[in-house]
Amino acid sequence: MVTLYEGAVLALLAGGVFFGVVAAVGLLRMPDLYTRAHAASKADTLGAGLSLAAAAAVLASSLPTIKAVLLLVFLFLTNPTAAHAISRAAADQGIEPWTAEDGGGGDGK
């Protein structure tokens, strides 16, 4: 019998896995560096975020929960910074962003 509490944890975990998969799929399907950075950095943030939230809920005692929340905070600070660093480096290298016209239909090839 799954209690409401366990159900919530399961839902969080499922969401985390879902967005993790979306990030991976996006990484494979997207056409260029910038769009891949979108997929990799963001969906991943939510994926990791939901998984950590699930962990925090399971642990339920105050201290590890706080630590999980802190992890989340640092994740949310560092993830966009890294994405920014990568895309800015790419822009400095003169890599032109892919546009819908380049791809003719946009199926990533």
């Binding site: 879902f18 996006g26 963001k42 969906a43 939510l46 975020g49 546009t99 819908a100």
Partner: peptide, 24 residues
């Protein structure tokens, strides 16, 4: 905002025709 936008992006990524229109 993150959750809402994430769902939107998940839709785009999983959509068979990948309906993206990137622009700077």
């Amino acid at each position: 905002e993150i959750v809402v936008a994430n769902v939107a992006i998940a839709y785009v990524v999983l959509h068979p025709s990948l309906p993206i229109d990137p622009e700077v």
